[in-house]
Nucleic acid binder design. Structure first.
Lengths: 238, 238
DNA sequence: TGACACGAAATTGTATACAATATTGCTTGA
DNA sequence: TCAAGCAATATTGTATACAATTTCGTGTCA
């Protein structure tokens, strides 16, 4: 297909990076494993070059560590950084929610309806409904993925590539920490998403930020009680 | 030099990425410029491969945008994200400072003195003295670089690679926003570094976090008054 | 004149080949 | 038996060659 600048062609080798990252997160490639370019190249049926770039990306994301000429190994799961990551995420997502609300307000006051905004907004609508369906059908195993997609979509709604990149990085680390366990907080956690979205739609930055802050904090509490023990002390929500 | 696993060999092609990023930050490569692999390869006297990896890294950092087969261009300076970046940085660095203080406390109570900790701690001592010297000699043009190095060193002292990576990303964006202007807040801002370091050394996490939060907030105020106008409203420091 | 199609040039994506380095295992000596 | 040195191997770093795709200029037709 030539002369087509509409479909962005979903980033060829990027997919390999996603696959390897998923293998790391799911524990197929445990911490400390050696990952050689040749082996991965053979596994995915391609040359070393795309694999190499994927490994470089994963190194920047903190999933592998590399030394020149000495190869790469899967990094250690950052368990001792969990609390701090949640703390930063709480602040980050709060800022993102506020920003999304401000942009939503500008969206409705300004005359022109931004095309990209509506696209993302509709995507979120779909995610929310899928989550409700999953809750209704008691298929809670679908929620973690939908949960991440919701939060990243909100970031996209904020139209801040910088903040979006930061959230992606943190969210993936937290996904790794949860590892295979995960079950989120289930129904209750999911229901909060609707309230956040409503606050953003209303252009209420203060409320959106507050709700998101609380939402993420509860997620943190859930994580801490599961992995640190129930009574683990956490800083009060700001 | 063979059989030497002491000197980590400072990351060959990584240096190219640093050089290109600096060109972008300093405006040598303005936003929207096309950056082609061939041109950069010729400029730095190497093959396309290292340059390509550097560009991929810069794309992940948000300094360039690429489309498959369509090349890369320097991204837009994220001016409208400045406030939000500062807000996140305030929280992030506060967490880092708290963490550094906790680790410092553990350092002194535990018997074994961690080698890496002392190395970083001494590096910070050097940075602080260099900054004092620059202030005394009224060479304030040296402060911005020393300032970034101080904050990144504190992050290293926290022994959290995840948080360190996040700070590096944010700090570089803010460096880009300041562009060539910069002068930091000069003497007063620099003096605060000593107090932060003292709080960390004392293992006082609450104080370290508080001081760092205030410090970054003041930096934010300085930025806002310079670029948004003096009276620009900012959220109160948490 | 303007729009559209087509093709040449430029650029990126991938594969392969070679150079540089680290790792591993063996040999040697005390 | 163990440590140290050396060579063989494996792996990464880089260069070059080719394929795939986009972009830009040119010509044609209405």
């Amino acid at each position: 297909m030539q002369h087509s600048h509409d479909n962005p062609e979903p980033a060829l080798n990027q997919s390999v990076q996603d696959e390897i990252r998923q293998d790391i997160i799911l524990g197929v490639l445990p911490s400390g494993s050696r990952v050689t370019e040749s082996a991965l190249a053979k596994k995915y049926g391609m040359s070393r070059v795309p694999v190499r770039e994927a490994l470089r990306g994963l190194e920047m994301e903190g999933f592998v560590v590399s030394r020149p000429y000495a190869g790469s190994t899967v990094a250690a799961i950052p368990v001792d950084e969990a609390d701090d990551l949640f703390a930063v995420r709480e602040s980050l997502e709060s800022v993102i929610a506020r920003r999304s609300a401000r942009r939503a307000a500008a969206q409705f006051t300004a005359g022109q309806p931004d095309d990209g905004w509506w696209k993302t907004r509709k995507e979120i609508a779909g995610i929310l409904q899928s989550g409700d369906a999953a809750v209704a059908a008691d298929e809670q195993e679908l929620l973690p993925d939908l949960n991440i997609r919701f939060h990243l979509a909100i970031a996209e709604l904020s139209a801040s590539t910088s903040l979006g990149a930061l959230l992606r990085q943190i969210a993936r680390k937290i996904e790794w920490l949860y590892a295979t366990d995960v079950s989120s907080r289930g129904k209750h956690s999911w229901a909060e998403h609707w309230a956040i979205m409503a606050a953003i739609d209303a252009g209420n930055a203060d409320l959106a930020g507050e709700l998101m802050c609380s939402h993420v904090h509860q997620s943190w509490v859930g994580y801490a009680s599961r992995f640190h023990g129930v009574g683990a002390e956490l800083p009060a929500r700001k």
